[in-house]
């Protein structure tokens, strides 16, 4: 497959696969339950040792197990947020771009309003009063995060639809007699896939950021016993890890969040390169030993002499 030829995509996908595997399988292979306590006497987190690879928390819970268990909710919620936001942005953005006129005006006003709203603040305001049972419902949280994220994708899709709408093949489809819904779904949408993919990945990254931030800030409570990377950061900070130097408590979850973000970003760059081949390194000459300078075409004098048959 052409997609796998890009190193960025391969690295990004592998990294992402690793974390997804972690999230799915983690809780089962973890040596302990995330809220299991080694003992209840000590109040000081233990550094990494052969018993506890990532050390323990203040309550003597195994950090390693917590990291393994903490990915599931994070990834699930951001994935949901990405899916719901993408669905919304397709519906609104493509309709606005294709139909134009009043439809476009109304939908654009709608997207502009949502764009202007400060996402994180809204999320905090909406989520804070909710009881912990609701806030652990991934669909609800994913949905609310999606509501603050769809508008950007909708603008981008609208712009792209506007330019695609004037393509000759859209005109040809109408000349044959295709109806509008068919034209949108079968002629325009397939050509929007690269942008859609990119927008989806962006939204997932945003979703991770939003969810981790919200749990870190303590806006979203979780039912007792449930651990996510965000709550680990929350608890470790509240317990004074930064001051006391208990790095094994907050560094692993932070690295995991960063790791997923990097994986997704690499995937995004890789898709960009495939869609726009000019961005690839091969064309800029890196690594081939030849320096390309604008206005000074390189001369190699390596051609075989005249008369060579091909």
């Amino acid at each position: 497959m052409r997609i796998l030829r890009s190193t960025k995509v391969v690295v990004g996908l592998s990294l992402l696969a690793f974390f997804v595997l972690l999230a799915v399988v983690g809780p089962f292979v973890a040596p302990h339950a995330p809220d299991w306590q080694a003992n209840t006497t000590s109040g000081v987190p233990q550094p990494p040792s052969s018993h506890f690879w990532f050390g323990t928390t203040q309550k003597q819970e195994d950090v390693f197990s917590q990291v393994l268990a903490g990915g599931r909710d994070t990834l699930l919620i951001s994935l949901l947020a990405g899916l719901i936001a993408s669905a919304l942005s397709i519906l609104i953005g493509v309709s606005a771009g294709y139909f134009g006129g009043v439809v476009d005006e109304v939908l654009s006003v709608l997207s502009n309003i949502f764009l202007a709203l400060p996402g994180l603040l809204i999320l905090m305001v909406v989520m804070k009063p909710l009881p912990p049972q609701d806030t652990s419902n991934p669909f609800l949280i994913g949905g609310v995060i999606a509501l603050t994220a769809w508008a950007w994708g909708a603008r981008v899709l609208r712009a792209q639809t506007l330019s695609l709408r004037n393509q000759d093949y859209v005109e040809s489809a109408r000349v044959i007699g295709e109806r509008s819904p068919r034209v949108i779904v079968f002629e325009i949408l397939p050509n929007l896939l690269p942008i859609l993919a990119s927008s989806f990945i962006f939204t997932v990254i945003y979703g991770i950021g939003a969810y981790v931030s919200l749990t870190w800030l303590g806006v979203i409570g979780v039912p007792s016993g449930v651990v996510t990377w965000g709550t680990m950061l929350n608890v470790s900070q509240a317990s004074g890890s930064l001051i006391s130097g208990w790095w094994w408590w907050y560094v692993p979850p932070a690295l995991c969040v960063a790791g997923v973000g990097i994986a997704l970003a690499l995937l995004n760059f890789g898709i960009d390169e495939i869609v726009n081949p000019r961005l690839t390194s091969a064309r800029t000459g890196r690594g081939s030993g030849v320096k390309f300078r604008l206005g000074l075409t390189p001369v190699l004098q390596s051609a075989p002499t005249k008369g060579d048959a091909k």
Binding site: Q167, D168, Y169, E171, S172, A173, V175, E187, P190, N191
Partner: peptide
């Protein structure tokens, strides 16, 4: 109607 640009008249 057949259009001008062979590169964009087919999807």
């Amino acid at each position: 109607l057949v259009l001008q640009d062979p590169f964009s008249s087919l999807n």
